[in-house]
Each structure stands twice: as C-alpha cells, then as structure tokens.
Design a protein around this nucleic acid. Structure first.
Lengths: 361, 361
DNA sequence: TTGTATGCGTTATCAA
DNA sequence: TTGATAACGCATACAA
C-alpha cells in the first residue's frame, strides 16, 4: 500500500491532476504556482512517493522497457552483449528486462509472450533455432525489435550479427595454411543462424582449398561445453582422427580442451584447436587459444541504434547488418606443413612464435 | 492496439466478466456453460488474445515478477548465479527482471527504484557498498527480499552467501603451508561485504601463523580485471615484492595473470597465485588456477527458497545463511618451504603434482 | 493556475 | 450460469 497521487492530493488539498502535473510533467507548461509546487513536492517527499509504473504504463501505453532475450546468459559472449546493451540503454533512460531462453525454443516462446504481455516498448532477441513463427507475433503486435547474433535468412527483420561465414573462413583458412587437411568442426545448435553460417564458412574454406568434406568430421549439437567435451572424445577415437578442430563457440572449445587434457593430448603438438568467440580468458588458457573475435560492443551499439530507429520510423526499410570478425592468432594451432617436420621441442618453439604474434595482432 | 477482453466480449456477445472468467480463472468455480466457454476460447484464439500484464498487475496488486540486481552481469560468478536463479524461478512460474548495477551504488539505487515502481513481488540483491539506506526502502515498501553474496553485518535481513572468511582462510593457509610469508591481497571493492570478509579471513590467517600484516601488501579497489592488472604491476615493482598473491575475485586474478605474462613472471615459479571464485575456465588457464569455489547453484536455490518463505510468512525470523566454500588446489601455487629448494624443473614437477591433486579434490 | 471527468484493461463484488 | 459495476493509479482533454 504505497502512497498514491490521491493521498498527496488529499494531504495538500489540491487535486490529483495538479499533483500529477507537479510531479511528472516537465510541469512548467501548466503554470503551477511556486506555492503549490513546493507544497506538493514537500508532501511527496515526506511520503516517499513512488509512481506506479503499471498504472502509468496502462494509461500511457508506453513502459520505457526494452526486453532482451538470449539463449544462455552464462555464456561469456552473451553476458558481454547484455552488459553492453545495458549500458547503451541506460544512456537513453530505458530499462530492460532480460530473459534466458536456455537454448530452448519453448522457453523463448514464453519469454516473448511474457514480454508482449508486459508491453515492452522494444525487443532485442538472440533467437534459438530456425522457426520464426513466434517472432512474427512480435511484428503483428507492432512492437519494434531487432535480432542479434542469430537471425533468419528468409525472414525480413532488422538484425545485427558478425559475418559468421567470413569468421569461419578466417579460422579454417588459418588451419589450412598451417598444413592441416583433416579438420573437424564441432557445431553448436544445428539450425541456428550462427551455427549454419559458421558451418557454411567451414565448408567453403575446405572446398576452396580442394579438400573434400568428410561428414564424419562435422559433429556436435549445441553450444555448451559438454558438447565440446563429448565430441572431442569421439573424434579422438576415430581410426583416422583430425589434426585440427574448429569449434563453433567458446564453451565448446573449453569442453574440447578438457577432453584433450584427460586424454593426454597436447595442444597444439598433438592436435590444433581454434574457435569462434574470444572471451576475456582465451589469452590465459593453456595454450592461449587462437580464436575469432566478435566486436561485441559494436554489436550492442548497433542493435540499440537500430532498435531506436525502428521505434521512431516503424516503416523504414529493414536492414541486416554484418560486422567484421577478427582472427586472433595465438598458440593453439601448430604448423604441420611438410616443410616443418622438426623435432617436438622445435614444434613447441613454433607455438611460442605464434604466441608472440598475438601480441601484435 | 492488441485485442482486449472487451473486444472478445463484443464479438461473442457475452459480458467482459464472463470472458475474463473463461480465460483466466480456473473458471470451473463459476459454472460457465461448455457452450460459452468454447465460443469465447475460439474467438480469443482467433484474435491472438494476450492478457495485459499491466492492467492485471494494477488490479491484483501482484505481478509475478521477481527483481534481481547484480553488480556485474559479465562477471562469470554473477552470470552463473543469475542462470541458476532463473531456473529456480521458472520452476515456480515466476518471471524475473535483471539489473546490472555496474558496481555503482547510484545505479543500484535507481534499479531498486525502478523495481519498486514496477511492483515486483520480490527482490534478490547482490548489493554494492556499505550503505543500506536504499535497502531499507525495500523493507518500508513491504516487499520481500533476500540479499545474495553481499550482505550487511549490521542490517537484519535474509541473506545467503558463502563463508567468505573461511574461504579466504582456506586460500591463505594453503599459501602459508606452501612456505609463503609475503602474501599480498588484491582487494575487490572496499566496503563491500564480500571484500571485507575476505580481507578479514586473509588477515586472520596471517595473524594465526604469526605473520605480521604489511599494509603495503593489501592493495586494489574493485573486482574488475584492470584492478588486478594494475596492482600486480605495482606489487612486482616493490623493493621487497610478495612471493604469493591472493585475489578477491576471478576477474582480478585474470588481470594479475596478464600483468605477470607481460613482465615475464612465471606462475608458480616466480610468483604464486590463488583466487576467490572458481569459474569454469580456471582449470584451463595456464597454469590451472588454484581457487576457492562457491556453491553457486546452492546459493541460488537457497536464495529463492528464502524469498519464498518470506513472501509467505512476512514476519518470520530473519536468517543469514553461510554456505561452505571449497578449496580447489591446482597448479598456481609453488611450494617454497625451505625443504623444497630444488631446481626449477623440479619446481615445475611440483606444479604437476598439484594438478593431479585437483583431480580428486 | 487549477479542477473534473474519463478511460487505459483487468478482476472482484454483488446482484440477478 | 451470467452481467453490471466499481476500482486499481495514473495522465490528459476539457472546463473553469
């Protein structure tokens, strides 16, 4: 039972509307006397008055809230995105509500439902999966939204993501240049935009290099670390195992690392590893992980900027923005080209050299 | 302009209240005829009806939302906590709203303000700093809340956190047993519950071991990695530098690691490092980091359970719960006790041994 | 410069 | 078994 405008009105002897105007309008447009203003403000303060956002939202049809949905809030990539988004939103005096869909489309659906019921003013979504019927509902509800990181090729919507194809290309080409030909890809969630495009880059790099695609080397099914762990174990058991693994996300790479450690596989001596995503800790891993970095804060800025534009101009042409990925070469990829058949200790040396490269990269 | 109950009522020719009852009551308690039920449901479906949460919240004085405030959503510890909290809440059909206070008390204040304005049904707060006047307001507003990770000694409130004193004791004692006497502590945000209690543990461990406290070795001022980086650089410059560093949080440790790498300081050979918090990646760092682990999912479960209890029984006695920390010994602490003056390679060996230990820990 | 009245979409009370 | 009606707290068009 918090105090309401009515309480203040009664206490001060003015009307509810006057109180409302003093407290919430930039009120000089009604010329409220200094006197009443002071009186009202004093009482409001003594009451610890707090506006009721539900009532206000109901009345004004505007909540000043932006909904954000990510597949995994504990994934460093997404938590970094959220952090940046939060910063951008704060600048513009918007609040935001985060949902974690846990990579589960039905949770994502219900998150969208909740958010629409709450009448958020806008939505930022990193969607799971390939189905976009629930996203359609957002449009039907006429609320502006922008897709982040994961979007749909055949669904026309504002979106911001990194150029995944290019990123994968960068990674796999780096492996190929280092002499690798049996290169495995541990996928994230199949059907996902991020996954399919990274897969596409992977395949395209191989094909361009004249390496035929071995479906046995394309494995995995989600972005979690357990997936990386399991699939790496299986890959290592292959009669003709890969010399290098490209993982679709940072958590997967962590799992791969764990599997290797358990099997006493030394990276990069026995196996090379490179990954999409480049969270803060890659530099400190053992070995430092070569990785494809996404411009996270740019993604967030871009997304919010686009959301804003959409809120102001609902009918502008829709845009799909692709941002540039960046390859950070560190110590997890060995050069095994035939020129480089040198003793193991020297091989180590090669690793060191690549570490140094990363300093300037 | 979404469809409302009124729209459905008009379309079906029944009253708004009937529509409401069919759609939202567990409605068999009013004996609505099968007929009307079917009619109403059909129209509602064809309209894609969605309840307006603001109107409902306004009317029922209940929003089914829980607010969550953390100091840094991109800190692996907090993002893991959020993830767990989200899972717990989902089980009970509660939604939640996360705020990132960015370790800034004024942002925390405004987050609380927003949340109260939104009339959330409960609050979970990992508070920054030592001031709790704004927390008082939550109580005055009569909304149930529980403090997580960071609480106030002199403020009676439900809270769940790890036994920080004990955790720090565990870490520092481990260093002492390994022969270290000049042990630095890189703090998090001073005044913070987490920081002060960890500091207390640090001091108490030293004192118990008869090591006098050197204020020059207690440095730092927030939980971010830059702090760890900067302070480590400074510590290394000391005329009489420490042989070991204990950091108050995972991000700080990462910063310390970076500083060491830049200065060509090898861990644990040249310097030992141990930290509070134990995110997924510590195992894969170079070297694997010895760390104090918090029981994150237990913290989340506990917090939500307590929040629930408080929502049901507002006047129950308030409880402060301390959970057990766990020391994970890995490879970042060298044994430098006088017995162990052995060549560097053997020192490395020691590191390996500790890695093995972690397997069973 | 201020007050009155209305409605945002729901649920709940009362009556039928 | 259903309908009218009031009320939640606020903002605003209109009046004074």
């Amino acid at each position: 039972m918090p105090y309401t405008l009515k309480d203040i009105a009664e206490k001060t002897g003015v009307s509810v509307s006057t109180v409302s105007r003093v407290l919430h309008d930039n009120s000089q447009k009604y010329k409220i006397s200094e006197d009443t203003q002071a009186k009202v403000k004093a009482v409001a303060k003594s009451f610890g008055y707090r506006v009721n956002a539900l009532a206000r939202g109901l009345r004004t049809q505007k909540t000043n809230e932006i909904g954000v949905i990510v597949p995994d809030i504990s994934n460093p990539f997404f938590s970094a995105v959220i952090k940046s988004v939060a910063g951008e939103l704060r600048k513009k005096n918007y609040n935001f509500i985060v949902y974690d869909s846990d990579e589960d489309i039905s949770i994502e659906r219900s998150a969208i439902k909740s958010l629409l019921e709450k009448h958020v003013d806008g939505l930022v979504i990193a969607s799971v999966g390939q189905d976009f019927s629930h996203i359609q509902k957002i449009r039907e509800a006429n609320i502006p939204f922008v897709m982040v990181d994961r979007c749909f090729d055949d669904f026309d919507a504002d979106s911001v993501s990194v150029d995944n194809v290019k990123g994968a290309l960068l990674a796999v080409n780096h492996l190929i240049k280092s002499g690798h030909r049996r290169i495995a890809f541990i996928q994230g969630l199949p059907g996902t935009y991020a996954n399919e495009t990274r897969l596409e880059g992977y395949k395209s790099a191989l094909t361009s290099a004249g390496i035929s695609i071995d479906e046995n080397l394309i494995v995995g099914d989600d972005f979690r670390s357990l997936n990386g762990y399991l699939e790496t174990k299986l890959l290592l058991k292959l009669s003709n195992p890969p010399t290098a693994i490209f993982t679709a996300g940072d958590l997967i790479a962590l799992g791969a690392l764990e599997a290797c450690r358990e099997n006493n596989i030394s990276i990069p001596d026995d196996l090379s590893l490179i990954t999409f995503d480049d969270p803060v800790f890659t530099t400190y891993l053992s070995p430092p992980l070569s990785a494809v970095e996404q411009p996270i804060s740019k993604i967030a800025e871009m997304a919010i900027a686009m959301l804003y534009r959409r809120m102001k101009n609902p009918n502008d042409e829709r845009r799909k923005v692709l941002l540039e990925p960046k390859l950070n070469v560190r110590g997890s990829v060995a050069n095994i080209s035939t020129l480089a058949f040198i003793p193991i200790t020297n091989n180590n040396q090669t690793g060191k050299e690549q570490i140094n490269k990363s300093g300037s990269a």
